[in-house]
Design a protein around this nucleic acid. Structure first.
Length: 505
RNA sequence: GGAGCGUUGGUAAAUCGGUUAAUACACCUCCCUUUCACGGAGGAAUGACGGGUUCGAUUCCCGUACGCUCUACCA
């Protein structure tokens, strides 16, 4: 089968927004589609049940844009198969549901939620299937006349699939191979709900056919309902036209067991969404990797490596390399626990790897938020280059580099006070004098003068460099002191020494 | 309970019957750095259990255990 259209179909998370697992599913779809020259398609469920809140759709596309995963066809980008929103396609689904009924492959069920609850309590392991159908209120046992009567009375109903008895259904999965389900183990799923909306089961099959999808990847949690989808394909459009399936492994909690959820992120202190998402109803914020200071390249790289590798031990991949090297056969079958430490490592690697220019603007806005306006872009580039090795997050640049532009707000006096004495005080007073008479401040020259002056005062340079550093940057961190002094210039250097000197008295 | 899927160090994982069972993150030690990092060298740590098949099983098969997913008019 040609790889023409690879689609991912998903609902926003219950509050809106798009979680980690969702983004990874999108990623794998994208990689596979691009690798084979196919179109990469996005479908989003919009039903009342998913609480498809305002802005969720736009948010999802912003997220994909940030990740660099632009779809070729989507509700927002249009395409030849409009309408794309499920809510606008109700009539289409209804027509196919009716066709199934006409063929005896589906039936009307009139049971209320309460009636079903009663049955669930009465019958152990209750399933709506061949074993229980005749105890329930549906067109199969009511007969045509009674059914028509109920329908004409406007009694609320759903349409359920009529599963064959004891039949093996094989689903061929690109990752897992053949998986066999027996129809007696699955129940007569609802296809069309009482409100006229289709369930996922009907909608995927109908849309995939109508929209000419050739490959469909989704999370592993869908595997148990796959036989229903296969049967629907068989009934409606023929197995030959069915897309290839792949069920992706789950992303698990770092501690304990189970699917990773937003709550786990909140509890353990890491984001579980690509970008910040505010639930418009509760105003609760789900934090995102972007705002946490991740580079999209790192985020995508980290996600791709969670459940897939190329077998060579390579860990850092550009999106182009991923497209070239990705293969469904090498996707893991088992779920992977999410490791935030590793995610951080990817980001620090990418901060080192990417040219500073690619994230300079974003870092500048972080500085602006701290009240530091960047006037000189060339100097800014130089500074970022100087400190990027010590940054894990983009936000780290603020602490690592703000002292280049502004005197430190707090000075770690405690780091130098205990060993402070008059001799050291004298040294720095002399240092100020030396600086004042010199013209330009050069790192190498300053280092020589600094050490000579130390020798004259019978002090070890090592004892003086830490205080000097703390005076300039406010703490025990940062690149070489003399380089910092050169970068901030003579006047700022003198001023910072002076302010700390008065504090020390 | 049932069905399906899964199980290599703490985590992510390589191996496609024969290796001292890679590598990366995290951890520890040392070097570099008169700061903090980066970097470099080293260390500790793994095939769930039991049967087969085989000259030989982490690898193939079957059980068991454990975990996960599904079992909604949610997706």
């Amino acid at each position: 089968m040609d790889i023409k259209k690879v689609r991912v179909r998903f609902a926003p998370s219950p509050t809106g927004g798009l979680h980690l697992g969702g983004v990874r599913t999108v990623l794998f779809n994208y990689l596979f589609a691009k690798q084979h020259g196919g179109d990469f398609i996005i479908r989003i469920e919009d039903t009342d049940q998913t609480r498809f809140v305002d802005g969720a759709e736009a948010y999802i596309f912003e997220t994909l844009k940030w990740c660099g995963l632009q779809p070729d066809e989507s509700p927002l980008h249009g395409g030849p198969f409009a309408p794309y929103r499920q809510s606008e396609r109700k009539l289409i689904y209804k027509a196919y549901a009716d066709k199934l009924i006409a063929n005896g492959q589906a039936y009307y069920a009139f049971d209320t939620a309460e009636e079903l609850d009663v049955k669930r309590k009465e019958i152990p392991n209750f399933q709506y299937n061949y074993a229980t159908r005749n105890l329930l209120k549906n067109s199969l046992i009511l007969g045509d006349d009674a059914t028509q009567k109920l329908l004409s009375q406007g009694v609320s109903y759903v349409i359920r699939i009529n599963l064959p008895l004891n039949e093996d259904v094989t689903i061929t999965d690109m990752i897992r191979g053949d998986v066999i389900f027996n129809t007696s183990q699955v129940d007569d799923k609802v296809l069309l709900k009482a409100d006229g909306m289709p369930t996922y089961h009907l909608a995927v099959v109908v849309d995939d056919f109508l929209m000419q999808i050739t490959h469909a990847f989704r999370g592993e949690e869908w595997l148990p309902s796959a036989p229903v989808h296969v049967l629907l394909w068989q009934y409606l459009f023929g197995l030959d036209n069915m897309p290839q399936w792949a069920h992706l492994p789950l992303i698990l909690k770092p501690d304990g067991h189970g699917k990773l959820s937003k709550r786990d992120g909140d509890r353990l202190g890491f984001p579980t969404f690509a970008m910040d998402w505010t639930d418009p109803k509760t105003l609760e914020v789900a934090s995102g990797f972007k705002e946490r200071g991740f580079l999209p390249e790192a985020f995508v790289n980290m996600l791709a490596a969670l459940g897939w590798n190329d077998g060579t031990g390579q860990e850092i991949f550009t999106i182009e390399e991923l497209v070239a090297k990705f293969s469904m056969e090498r996707v893991h079958k088992g779920g992977a626990k999410f490791d935030y430490e590793k995610a951080k490592w990817y980001n620090s690697e990418w901060i080192k790897k990417m040219p500073v220019a690619s994230y300079q603007l974003q870092v500048a806005s972080l500085f602006a938020a701290e009240g530091i306006v960047i006037a000189n872009d060339a100097k800014f580039t130089k500074v970022l280059e100087l400190v990027k090795d010590r940054c894990t997050f983009l936000n780290d640049f603020v602490t690592q580099a703000s002292f280049f532009f502004k005197a430190p707000e707090s000075i770690d006096i405690a780091a130098i006070q205990p060993k402070w004495d008059d001799k050291k005080n004298m040294f720095f007073i002399e240092l100020i004098r030396v600086l004042e008479i010199s013209n330009l401040l050069d790192a190498a020259d300053l280092e020589i003068e600094f050490k000579e002056l130390a020798a004259v005062n019978q002090l070890k340079p090592g004892e003086l460099m830490l205080p000097f550093r703390v005076m300039l940057v406010g703490g025990k961190f940062g690149p070489g002191v003399f380089e910092i002094a050169e970068m901030i210039g003579k006047d700022a250097t003198i001023n910072r020494i002076k302010t700390v000197l008065t504090d020390l008295k």
